[in-house]
């Protein structure tokens, strides 16, 4: 294992161990909500409305609830007594901001992915079989909003809330793209067999770009970050 990957693995292991209860709680909460959420798809007047309602029901639960869990786990990465010494040790280690950012981002992403998988399994076990594509879409949305929320951990006051708001908006935009992007015009003839193609492609592209920019920005902010105690 290379020098940098050793540091990455050590940080991820230590943080996963520190947050194992939070991660298991997220998984259990996701599974419970997946069992309890109403799975009924209401009757529609036409094919387009039926399509939109079905997509919405498939995606809304996992994308919004697991996105919320991802944001919460991201916010617990910094601050609090439990993480304070890990933070200080990692900040005092000879690592670059981007290396530290990747390692610390991996933990909430792992938690969010686990919660989404639990949600999907529980939903399937409850007799609701959504299309597998929507699992991938939910996962992309959850990862993007979690990565955006990480920047909130380095800020205080109004700017902290602003980043939390942007993370929530990321989930909402991803949902709107996945559900409604195909409804704005006819699907090109070449994509006739893939009626969801535009929605799927735009949602994945949006989540990739948002997640990539968020991680870059988090790395740069972490390099400038001063771990000053609040009190």
């Amino acid at each position: 294992m290379g020098v940098r990957s050793r540091a990455f693995a050590a940080i991820v292991r230590a943080r996963l161990r520190a947050q194992r209860r939070v991660i298991w709680s997220c998984c259990i909460a996701a599974a419970l909500v997946a069992f309890l959420q109403p799975h009924k798809i209401f009757p529609a007047h036409d094919a387009l409305e039926a399509d939109l309602i079905t997509r919405g029901v498939w995606l809304a639960g996992p994308a919004f609830f697991c996105g919320l869990l991802g944001i919460v786990v991201a916010l617990t990465q910094r601050g609090g007594d439990r993480m304070r010494q890990l933070d200080l040790i990692e900040q005092s280690a000879p690592l670059y901001g981007r290396e530290l950012a990747r390692a610390t981002a991996a933990v909430p992403v792992v938690a969010a992915v686990m919660a989404t998988v639990c949600y999907w399994i529980a939903q399937f076990a409850a007799g609701f079989a959504a299309a597998p594509t929507y699992f991938v879409l939910a996962l992309a949305s959850v990862i993007a909003s979690t990565l955006v929320a990480l920047s909130a951990t380095l800020r205080r006051g109004a700017s902290r809330w602003l980043y939390i708001g942007i993370a929530a908006a990321t989930s909402a935009i991803a949902y709107l793209l996945a559900v409604y992007a195909d409804a704005f015009g006819p699907v090109p003839k070449e994509l006739g067999h893939y009626p969801d193609a535009i929605g799927v492609a735009t949602e994945l592209a949006f989540c990739f770009i948002a997640g990539f920019l968020a991680l870059r920005q988090y790395g740069e902010a972490l390099a400038r970050y001063d771990p000053v105690p609040e009190t």
Binding site: R6, A7, A9, A10, R13, A14, E90, A93, P94, L95
Partner: peptide, 9 residues
């Protein structure tokens, strides 16, 4: 020690 050693290469 393993954690600290990994961070300091």
């Amino acid at each position: 020690v393993d954690y600290r050693a990994a961070l300091w290469s």
